[in-house]
């Protein structure tokens, strides 16, 4: 996994609550057996005016000019500013894969759905939780200020707005460590193989029917 330390990035505001993973990456693109290539179909139904299917040349499809990510001023955005309960719905990891493939490295929102939140950390996509009032303010500034950028400092757990004001955010220590170091979580867990085997022996003794 790519390390995440300090990100200074352009902000794209997506002003709607309860953005679900079906909207982030529609089901027809989940047929892929790869982890990459989902970026062109991120928010497919909102981003294009026609209906997308796998295998289409997305560069030739008509874009919805009203959709935020199609506006030239947000080209190259690495931080998605979003509303509450972002990423609700299906467990599809294709959602963070599509966001990172598009170029996002972080999201700032008041809240996230649990599975999406978890999946994001596994893919070097940092979901920052900010109070709703701060998010409201960031929306106002992002929409009013061309080229609005934020600095997200994961080691220090702060979001820095232009002018230098800092907002602290909470992040689980284990997830933060893995992300800052870019660790392979499976390799890390396998260091506990002996403990897993010992647990398995106790578990088998207590509930042998689980191991038949």
């Amino acid at each position: 996994m790519e390390k995440f330390t300090v990100l200074d990035g352009l902000v794209a505001p997506l002003d709607r609550p309860n953005v679900d993973t079906d909207a982030i990456i529609p089901k027809q693109f989940l047929k892929s057996i790869k982890r990459s290539g989902f970026g062109p179909n991120l928010f497919d139904e909102w981003r294009y005016l026609d209906h997308g299917e796998p295998g289409m040349d997305n560069s030739k499809r008509p874009l919805n000019p009203n959709f935020v990510l199609n506006q030239p001023k947000y080209r190259g955005a690495q931080i998605l500013l979003a509303r509450e309960n972002f990423g609700c719905g299906s467990s599809r990891e294709h959602a963070p894969w599509a966001l990172t493939d598009f170029g996002f490295r972080a999201i700032v929102a008041p809240s996230y759905a649990d599975i999406f939140f978890n999946n994001s950390f596994k893919n070097g996509l940092l979901p920052v939780i900010m109070p709703a009032a701060v998010v409201d303010r960031l929306f106002l500034e992002a929409e009013a200020t061309p080229g609005f950028r934020l600095t997200i400092d994961l080691p220090r757990q702060v979001v820095v707005i232009p002018g230098g004001q800092e907002f602290r955010f909470e992040v689980d220590a284990f997830r933060k460590h893995n992300m800052v170091e870019g660790l392979d979580e499976i390799g890390l867990t396998l260091k506990q193989s002996d403990a897993i085997r010992a647990f398995e022996d106790r578990h088998r003794a207590a509930q042998p029917w689980l191991f038949v």
Binding site: R35, S91, I115, N118, N119, K122, I186, T189, I196
Partner: peptide, 21 residues
């Protein structure tokens, strides 16, 4: 439910790292 990275983690380790809800 879990994501695909966790599917791989469970296949490889029979475990998941998580905090109690």
């Amino acid at each position: 439910g879990i994501g695909t990275s966790e599917v791989e983690h469970v296949l490889a380790t029979q475990t998941l790292n998580m905090k109690k809800a």
